[in-house]
Write a protein that binds this DNA or RNA. Structure first.
Lengths: 218, 218
DNA sequence: GCCGAACCGTAACGTACGGTACGGCTCAGG
DNA sequence: CCTGAGCCGTACCGTACGTTACGGTTCGGC
C-alpha cells in the first residue's frame, strides 16, 4: 500500500506565473505524453529553460509539480450526508459514478495516468502515488461517509466500507479506464455516462441495499 | 474501438533462437520497464545488436514482437459449457475470476501493460491494441460462451452478453489493476485471490442469476 | 577443405535531449 | 541615473542510446 500523502500545500505556494507555466506543461503533456521535452515546455510557456530548472529542479520535478497542480484543481467539496433516504442515496451514488466516469475519460486524466503508469516501478519519482492519492483514494475518502450514512440509516448493509467501496468502484469503472489507457477509442457521451452511472448505482444497491426486516433503521 | 486483430501467426514463425531472444527481452522488460536498451537486450540474450535489428527492424519492432510472444504463450483452452448447472457455472465463474486476477497481478502482465500504456497515444506502434486484444478481449471471447450457456440453461438472465461481461470484469478487477499499474504494492496472495474470485462470482450471480419462475429452463 | 550465410562482439556514428552558462532586457528600490 | 534581482532567449556541453558498420567465428552444404 502506498498511502503517501503528497505535500498538500506545495500546490498552493505557487505564483501566478508558475501556475501559468504548469498549465502550459499540462497542455503539452496531454498532447505529447511523456516524450515532452524541457525545451518544448519552455517554448510553450514562453519561459527559459533556466527558469524551469530553477523552479522545479529537474524534469521529474516539473512532471511532479504538474501532476500536483492538476490535482489541486480538482479538489471538490465533500457531500453532506444528512437526511438520507433511498432517493437521495441513489442520487448521490449516481453523482459519484458519473463524476468519476467523466474524470477517467477526460484527456487530462488519461494523459496524467499514462505518464504516472509509465514512471511507476522506475523508482525515480512517485507520480503513481500522487495520482492514486488524488484519484482512487480521494474518491474513497469522499464516498465512504456516504456509505456509512447509508448504513446508519438502515438503507445499506455491508460489513466493511472499504470492501463495499471497491465493489462500487468496479461497478462504475469496469473496463473503461484500462481500455482508455491502452488507447482504445471509447466514446463516452454524456448520455452514456448517465446510463452507466444509473446502472452502477442500481447494481450497487441490489448488492448492498438492506433487505427489509434486516438491520432496520433505528 | 480498436479490435485490431494482431497477426496471430507472427508469433509462430519464430525459430527457437528467436524465442530465446524474446524471452530474454521479456525478462529484461519486467526488470527495467520501458527504459531497456537495445544493448542490454543484446547482452542479456548473448546476441549482437545487428541481429536484433535484422530480425525485428527497430526498437518498436522488438517491443511488439516481445509482447506478441508473451501473448502467444498464454493462449488457453476454451472451457466447454455442456451439462451446466448452478454449481458448475459458479465454479466456472470463479475459475475465470481467479485466473484473471492471477494474470493482472503478475509481474509480466504489469510490465507489459506499463509499456503498452506508455506507448499508447504516441501513434508509433499499437502495443496497446495487442495487449487489449490478448487480455480484456480474449477474456471476453472465452467467457461469453459460458454466459450464453448459462442463459440457455435458465441459470442466468441478461439482455446483452457484452454488458454482462463488462460487469463481471468490473466485479473481478475492481481497483486492482490500476493500483498495481500505478505502483501500489498490493500483495495478492493465493488465498486472497480465491476469496475475491468467490465474492465476484457470488455478486455476479446475485445480479444476473435468473429469478425462479422467470425464464425457466426450457 | 572451401565457400558463403548467419551471427557474435565491438567499435563507431549521429542525434536528441537533459542540464548549464551567459548576455541582454525589464523593473523595483534607492 | 544606478544597481541588482529575476527572467528570457539562445548557445553550448555531455551523454545516453538508437542505429549502422565491420572484422572474426561457426557451421552446413558441396
Amino acid at each position: 500500500m502506498l498511502h503517501i500523502v503528497p505535500d498538500i500545500e506545495t500546490a498552493e505556494a505557487l505564483t501566478e506565473r508558475q501556475k501559468a507555466v504548469l498549465d502550459a506543461a499540462l497542455r503539452l503533456l496531454v498532447e505529447e505524453g511523456d516524450q515532452l521535452t524541457m525545451a518544448a515546455v519552455a517554448r510553450r510557456a514562453s519561459c527559459s529553460k533556466e527558469t524551469l530548472y530553477k523552479w522545479f529542479g529537474d524534469r521529474d520535478g516539473l512532471l511532479t509539480a504538474t501532476v500536483q497542480w492538476q490535482a489541486s484543481k480538482v479538489r471538490v467539496a465533500p457531500v453532506d450526508a444528512k437526511g438520507l433516504d433511498i432517493a437521495s442515496l441513489t442520487a448521490s451514488l449516481e453523482r459519484f459514478a458519473s463524476d468519476w466516469l467523466r474524470v477517467i475519460s477526460s484527456d487530462t486524466s488519461i494523459a496524467l495516468n499514462r505518464v504516472a503508469v509509465g514512471h511507476a516501478g522506475s523508482g525515480k519519482d512517485n507520480l503513481g502515488a500522487v495520482v492514486l492519492e488524488n484519484g482512487r483514494f480521494a474518491l474513497a475518502k469522499r464516498l465512504k461517509p456516504v456509505l456509512e450514512a447509508g448504513r446508519q440509516s438502515g438503507l445499506l448493509d455491508f460489513a466493511d466500507a472499504e470492501t463495499a467501496f471497491r465493489t462500487f468502484f468496479g461497478l462504475v469503472a469496469r473496463d473503461v479506464q484500462i481500455r482508455l489507457l491502452l488507447g482504445d477509442r471509447l466514446e463516452l457521451t454524456e448520455v452514456a455516462i448517465g446510463g452507466d452511472a444509473a446502472r452502477a448505482a442500481q447494481q450497487f444497491l441490489a448488492l448492498f441495499g438492506a433487505k427489509p426486516g434486516r438491520k432496520a433503521s433505528n
